[in-house]
Design a protein around this nucleic acid. Structure first.
Lengths: 223, 223
DNA sequence: GATAGTTTCATACACGCGTTTGAAATGCAA
DNA sequence: TTGCATTTCAAACGCGTGTATGAAACTATC
């Protein structure tokens, strides 16, 4: 099937263009030009523009989730069913951060495409995105196992904030650079990941009366 | 000048529609229909669609910045040139959070429009947005005055994260609600503001060996 | 090498967009 | 009222979009 080449070329080109310029500014003619295929090829192979976008999103969504869960599983196995909370947060934000920041070489269009998708909220994606909630719930569940004495609401908030920090850092890294006059280093992805994780964990650990990860803590009271 | 009525109606309608549905999905015909004016009125009064958007953004940008700076100034006066860091963060994220969340009554289209603008990044706005950096630098400067012993980079990161948490909470409050099965209360705006501020401050205070706002805290070890 | 199925291609279609036009309506000063 | 400038209006224009069409080129099986 030499026909697969056209399909693949479209997928690659579309993903790159959407990642770079967003959904609004990229037309089918842009895509087929970049892929060096005929205009009608998209409709022939994917049905419609929306179906192309949906397929891109589903494929990448599954891949990202798989990578996150792989790290989560490793963390849980390393910790003996009570994983280190730092490792859980790192599994959540690490894959995306690594894909979107850091040296140009290892930046993936895939990850940046997903960031676009999480920002621009175009119609065909919006319908699918509901499943993401179930995925995040697995991380929330792991965190509750890791910190059984914490208020669940605090855990959800921390998870929410961790994603917020990671995404904003990816989306608006330029503003941070300019605001800090280059003082904030955006090339060291590991350091950024550590920082996001540290803030999320610190926020969570400051909450209950008992402090540390290891020792049992009493039931919590909200301030 | 009865003509002002048409101008005002367009501005009000456009701001509301853009806030609700985003820039991509709102056409001029939608706007003039909502404003109950003729299609040509936008071009007559504003020149073009882009100029309308730019005017909306500039107006609201100035208003938001004014409100933030008013609170910042109050915080600095209350603290005697060394403002409480909590108050500084609250001045940064409070106005927007109050405008975008909470009971329907007090939600302002203005604030939600600004959130849209910070997310969708449409061409006419992108050009203007560079000035925002200067505005944020004033908050960074206030924080450095408040915490002279802290690493400036940490302060910039904390500021960046505070904005990230606030914006994500506004933009994706629905996901948080669904993920937490309604456990996270998004109606109590004051509590949300407090939480965002607390996380930002905690993140900052965990860094140096210096003491926290209230009680002395030990230095944190990074995992 | 003929034939049936698949894939490519140039071209055109219908539609919605922001904008323009020129005349009608309105406001306002003398 | 008259006259002029401002504002509104219905209608249309040009353009770019996603999609559809039907013929041509290719591929594979016999």
């Amino acid at each position: 099937m030499a026909a697969d080449h056209t399909r693949t070329a479209i997928i690659t080109a579309a993903e790159r263009l959407y990642a770079e310029r967003g959904f609004a500014d990229v037309t089918m003619r842009d895509i087929v030009a970049a892929a060096d295929v005929n205009l009608a090829a998209v409709n022939y192979h994917f049905g419609s523009k929306d179906e192309l976008i949906a397929e891109l999103f589903v494929t990448r969504s599954l891949a990202t989730n798989r990578e996150r869960l792989r790290e989560l599983k490793a963390a849980e196995e390393a910790g003996g069913d009570r994983a280190d909370i730092n490792a859980i947060f790192a599994a959540l934000v690490g894959p995306t951060l690594r894909g979107c920041l850091g040296p140009e070489k290892q930046r993936s269009d895939a990850a940046r495409f997903m960031i676009r998708a999480s920002i621009e909220s175009v119609a065909p994606i919006r319908k699918i995105k509901n499943r993401e909630v179930d995925h995040l719930k697995r991380f929330a569940a792991a965190m509750r196992r890791s910190l059984p004495d914490h208020d669940p609401a605090d855990i959800f908030w921390a998870l929410h904030f961790a994603l917020a920090m990671a995404h904003q850092t990816i989306r608006d890294s330029e503003r941070l650079t300019r605001m800090s006059d280059g003082l904030c280093d955006l090339n060291d992805v590991q350091a950024i990941t550590d920082r996001v994780v540290a803030v999320a964990v610190t926020a969570l650990m400051g909450k209950p009366a008992k402090a540390a990860t290891k020792e049992p803590a009493k039931a919590k009271a909200r301030a």
